[in-house]
Design a protein around this nucleic acid. Structure first.
Lengths: 211, 211, 211, 211
DNA sequence: GATGAATGAGTCTTCATTCAT
DNA sequence: GATGAATGAAGACTCATTCAT
């Protein structure tokens, strides 16, 4: 069993500490408030120390976003029971996504309003790393759709664009909530969205999202 | 009829000039490239002069966005024939929206990636002015939906959330295009979206978006 | 007669002030001590103000060097009596060059030890501006040589390389003095150099540099 | 015979390694690119380790320059046949100097443009160590001159200043070449310089540098 | 002896806003 | 009203040197 060296632990701790500080600042004041000074101070590290762990400010921010994106995705995926029916899984996914996003509402307020980092390239080359998370999530939706269509549970829609739309609608719903613009409760909104999806994918006669 | 004073004309001209410069810079280089220096230079006005027309930089940017939002909305609305059927009008609306957004792709690339200005408050007070345009557009969609539903052309969906979803899907589609992430042609994407809406709103038997 | 505007005077004053501060710092502590902070403080200007007059640090330094180079060249050239004989003029030139360089000994200590700025390129493009001064001076020497050769006062040497060597020897002599490495007095060194040149250019029988 | 301890060998190896890395960096990117990090990385030594061999950065650089100066001097001196005539030896010396300097053109580009390290004092005290090499070389020239004068092969010039001038001219010639400012080929330039020296030191009637 | 993580002062540069003219 | 010079706070990034391990 590999013994973890003390320095590796410290290294790891520092990295986490920096990412957490960064995330907190982003959540509280937005990307423009992320200054190396502030991050370092909050992480209890000297300013120059950040550069031992991250090449530059952009890398730090992207890493912080990636971490939270990854965590959210994991959170969503664990809420989906792989043995459930496609429709059930879709419900769990959409509902889970909104719940998870709501949990991280402070951070998401910034993340959704300010997507400058999505496409910006790093020093090394083009960096669309952040888009990967979105793609992975869409793929998840698509798999569910495909199974549902195969099993004649869903209408025979084109799974790729529909997966895209479902995700966008879910994100939009969450965004509206997070920005404080939602007209109704979370529960009502999720139900509304699921009813909408049910209308679309399932038989006209059975639009009960619970089933 | 009020006689327009010379100074009022000049005032107006300067304002337009400033807004246009601002818009151009946003489109070409993003919000962070909007510096008072650059705007003034491009508008042929002294830097200090901007403050005669706008309280501060944020106000200037919001005004520039508002102008373009207003223009786009007008552009979309003129493409809708008020005497056409609800479905036709919805098609015209969605299609028009994507076309108009595509026309302003450079500006939208920034506007969609960076929505920081949507909520930020001005010196004076809260500024959700920009959200008005979105609301107005959603309302437009809702009116169409309501008429369609009343006339039994559309399924009896809840018009408010569906209007919201339709707009979000359309914007997402345009955004994906503008960022260069779209998987197919504009035409194909619009058709896909309309087919999706047709599936949702209309009779299962008649999904031809053209009709 | 053009009336000089007040602002133009101020502008000029600021520029001079900045260049003088820069020169002083270079003379006292070398190029690496030239920081924008220090220059601004010494010139009594806010740090950002420097950028109203110079594009960047490099431009500021080059301008400071250029100013002093130009001044020195002028100083040397006014010591040469254009009606004197070629040999006399050469003596005046060499002697004047060493005197003038000695006057600016502090600055030259740095300038001669650190010629990094001679070739470095500016933001705009290649900048060998500083070499122009050296070329102009060499050309001056060459003209004297050519006249002397034409009038059979000097040996028929190749004027271009000899002008180069004469200048290099003079500069080397001044440099050695300025660095405090000179073995004898300024007077003695100049005489030694002129004797050397006399030996080279003039008749073997008449090596009296005074004649 | 002293037995060389293992640690002494290692010590020596490390020192050489560090000096070589330093030299390479100077040659490739100039003094300002010499960072302890880079040197250590290139030498395969930990950064802190440098301080076991050199008191500080300045000492390291000076040592690197010294090494190359020493090597160049050796290179020049081996090209001089001690049994040849003074004139011949002088030719070999000048020619050899230019050849050797040309061999190290990359390093010399920096060394000649940036002589900051010549005089700067180390932590311990004044450091004119580097000037020793120049002095040794000048002395070499002087010895040749003195012998030539004694044997009536050269004109009876004052050997010390003339040695200084000869060296300065040679260095200037090499410098101009290394900076890419030379007007003609290396061969032509050496010949020009030797003709110049011949003119000066030898009989007016026999200026063939080959003889 | 060796390591390399950590420090933190130091550097250039940008820019919104003000205000004397 | 209009100008644009001046301000000065702020920010990203570097690097020689130290020191706990």
């Amino acid at each position: 069993m590999a013994r973890v060296s003390r320095s590796a632990i410290l290294q790891d701790y520092r990295t986490r500490s920096l990412l957490e500080s960064t995330r907190k600042i982003i959540a509280a004041h937005g990307f423009d408030a992320v200054t190396m000074d502030r991050v370092a101070a909050q992480a209890g590290i000297a300013k120059g120390g950040i550069y031992l762990y991250f090449r530059n400010k952009h890398e730090l921010i992207v890493a912080a976003i990636e971490e939270i994106a990854s965590e959210m995705l994991r959170g969503i995926e664990t809420r989906v029971d792989p043995r459930a029916s496609p429709w059930k899984r879709l419900c769990q996914l959409v509902c889970g996504q909104i719940e998870v996003m709501e949990q991280h509402r402070d951070l998401l307020r910034t993340l959704l309003l300010d997507r400058r980092h999505l496409l910006r390239r790093t020093g090394g080359g083009p960096s669309r790393r952040l888009l990967k998370y979105r793609e992975r999530h869409e793929l998840h939706i698509r798999k569910i759709l495909e199974e549902g269509i195969r099993r004649r549970i869903f209408q025979p829609v084109d799974p790729a664009p529909v997966a895209f739309y479902i995700n966008e609608m879910t994100v939009s719903t969450a965004q509206r909530r997070v920005l404080g613009l939602a007209p109704s409760s979370q529960k009502a909104e999720v139900e509304g969205l699921l009813r909408f999806l049910s209308l679309l994918l399932r038989d006209r006669q059975s639009t009960d999202p619970k089933s």
